[in-house]
Amino acid sequence: MASITLHNLGKLYAGGSRAVGDVNLDIADGEFIVLVGPSGCGKSTLLRMVAGLEEISEGEVRIGDRVVNKLEPAERDIAMVFQNYALYPHMSVRQNLAYGLKNRGTPKAEIERRVNEAAEILQIGPFLDRKPRALSGGQRQRVAMGRAIVREPAAFLFDEPLSNLDAKLRVAMRLEIKQLQKRLATTSIYVTHDQLEAMTLADRLVVLNGGKVEQIGTPLEVYRRPASAFVAGFIGSPAMNLIDSRAVPHLPGTAHAGMVGIRPEDLTLAPDGPIEMQVLAIEELGAQRLVHGTTGGEKLTIALPPEGSIPDSLRLSYRPDALHLFDRKTGKRIN
């Protein structure tokens, strides 16, 4: 096990285009870090630089106390779980798990012990002698995890490991990964574009946009105090309302801000509230009711308990500390 440090890490491609710039991050031993952002934000490139699959063009990566910039992936003491699992199709599950250990010259008895142990943890014992093609998506996912576990590496790297699974299985596997990581206490970096997955798994989140770090923090910190309008819009579902302050000039304390953010769940019905909303559509989610509409020409969504009927026009109120203010130009938080 080890800590991981990224220092001024950057990636420039030969053509001069920049994928990642100036990333600084200290990952503690045993910590679960999630890199999250929209597609093309550089999160996978960042992970692949840590893995050694992508050359590092700026800065350095340390795993434990070693700078690993020039080391081969196999020498970095990491294990990786790929989005499409990347199981060797011609090898049995057992051979898939054992391959990395065999290449390292681990003694046969030790390989046997570790494979059986991983099989037990992941409940894939009955499939050990099958080929990957004979397994379901969830089972393949477990084998891919098993291949990482048997190595007992300093760190796990996950590259969108759940995005090939159906929604139900994804939720179940998410929980299993979380429990497994707690149990093994192995430092982990996990890449996803799914903010819900990021929130539920992470000890700390790294929100990336356009190759730059927007915010680093625990899920609750990021949710409660998004550092930029981008993070505010990206984290949380339904997404935070971001309104041009000129559309709501009557709201106190917003005059100097360019953008006002407020979460749908922070808005409440109040007959004398300061915001008036024209209702356009209602979505029933069962536990919650989402009401979409406009105020002063800006789109607005609120989350209400599913009770009563909704008139065409609503008046809304909010707690003063629920307002998030962002600079119009830079998008940075200013309150």
Binding site: A74, N84, A86, Y88, G100, R147
Partner: peptide, 14 residues
Amino acid sequence: IPDELTEAARIDGA
């Protein structure tokens, strides 16, 4: 042959 297979093999020390 998918790139990931090559990458997995590299990580596995091949």
